[in-house]
Computed example of a mutant assay.
Amino acid sequence: MSDPYVPPAVWSPDTVSGGVFAGINRPSAAPRIEAELPRGQHQLQLYTLATPNGQKASIMLEELLEAGHAAEYDGWTIEIGQGDQFSTGFIAVNPNGKIPALLDLRGPQPVRVFESGAILLHLSDSFGAFGGRAAARAEVLSWLFWQVGAGPFMGGGFGHFYHYAPEKLEYPINRYAMEVKRLFDVADRRLQESRYLAGDEYTIADIASYPWLSAFVFGTAYGDAREFLSIQDYHAVDRWVREIADRPAVRRGRLVGRVTGPPEKQLRERHSPADFAGKDV
């Protein structure tokens, strides 16, 4: 066991933390490289990567298209491991330097939308879709923001300390494992009493939560986290995940911005439905 860490009186970014993100993490939000973002022919430009947060936006756009809305878009990969998110062009769309980000060119002036929850709300409101009926609107928003608050515990908390940190430490792993299991229990209890998170209707609450919860259910998140957390015990979540996974728009949306795995599971750019030809959807 390593010696206990004693925080200095004043923290300095010169401290080496190690880990896979050590090369890109800095305490500054300023852009680091001069580079413009690409633009395609459509009025909606999505800049993303197929992480759970990134999948929310692409799934939403594909669901809108599946439902018959005029939501054609160009999807561009932002490779966060290479620092694409720190370009001047990307920071202009998202000053927080995180994916996904959306540029909406449908009006007289470009509208930037950043943070995945805001993108879902913006698209839901502007297209009048997947926002829930009026009586259920508060329930939809409550579950949407439940997920927005839960994501950092699952990724930045549990995922970092259990999978990415250069050293396994009992306290943070226990702390965040406890919280992830509690969040799964919240969802499981809700899904025992309703088909979807906000009720009987599929909404942006489900679109937001699905990429995160499904990653644990399917065992694609953080190595052996499914076994470690006994995810198989959450039967209602499992039923809900597998039902949503069968939606054609979800299968397409999960591919957008994927740069790992076999070629049939990758889609670095998306400009039309034809881009999915030959892909494993």
Rank of each mutant, 00 (worst) to 15 (best):
A221G: 08
E66N: 11
G23F: 11
G132V: 03
G131N: 09
H69K: 14
L191F: 12
E269Y: 15
S272R: 08
L120Q: 09
R251V: 08
I173P: 00
D275L: 08
E62R: 03
M154V: 09
L121R: 14
H42M: 05
E63A: 06
R39W: 11
R252M: 02
G128L: 01
E193F: 04
I173T: 00
R39A: 12
F184E: 08
D74H: 04
Q192T: 04
A129T: 07
A198N: 02
P273H: 10
V10T: 02
E227P: 07
A29P: 14
I91K: 15
R133E: 12
T220Q: 14
D14P: 15
Y164W: 14
F216D: 01
L121M: 15
W212V: 02
I33P: 01
L37Q: 12
L46G: 03
E79P: 09
D246C: 06
E34G: 11
L61N: 01
A187S: 05
G155Y: 10
L64K: 12
R182D: 14
I204N: 03
G149K: 00
M178N: 15
A215F: 00
A118H: 09
Y162A: 06
P211W: 01
A92M: 12
S214P: 07
R39E: 11
G75P: 13
P248F: 11
L37D: 06
T77V: 01
L197R: 04
L197P: 02
D206Y: 06
P110S: 08
G219W: 02
A9G: 09
I207R: 08
N96W: 13
D246G: 07
R190A: 05
N174W: 08
S230E: 14
M60T: 01
G159A: 04
E34L: 07
N96Y: 15
E66W: 10
G155Q: 05
H122C: 03
L213D: 02
R251C: 05
G83Q: 05
L267R: 03
F216R: 03
L255K: 06
W143T: 01
F90W: 13
Y196R: 03
A177M: 15
Y5I: 06
T220C: 11
G89L: 01
Q232T: 11
V237W: 06
Y73M: 03
I231G: 01
I78V: 04
V281C: 12
V241S: 04
E72C: 08
M154Y: 10
R251A: 11
F145D: 05
R39C: 09
I231L: 07
A134T: 04
P8L: 02
R195Y: 11
E139H: 12
R242E: 04
G156T: 03
V186H: 11
P8S: 00
Q109I: 00
S272F: 12
P108E: 09
M60A: 03
A9H: 12
I244V: 00
D238I: 14
S272H: 12
D14L: 15
A177P: 15
F90H: 11
P7N: 08
A9D: 14
I24N: 12
Q266E: 13
S126M: 09
F218C: 03
V6W: 12
G89N: 03
G261V: 01
M1N: 07
A249E: 08
R254K: 13
H122K: 02
A274K: 13
D125I: 05
V93F: 13
G253S: 01
P95K: 08
F130V: 05
N174D: 08
R32S: 09
A177Q: 14
L123H: 05
G97A: 02
Q147T: 06
I173G: 00
A118T: 10
I204Y: 06
R112Q: 07
H163I: 04
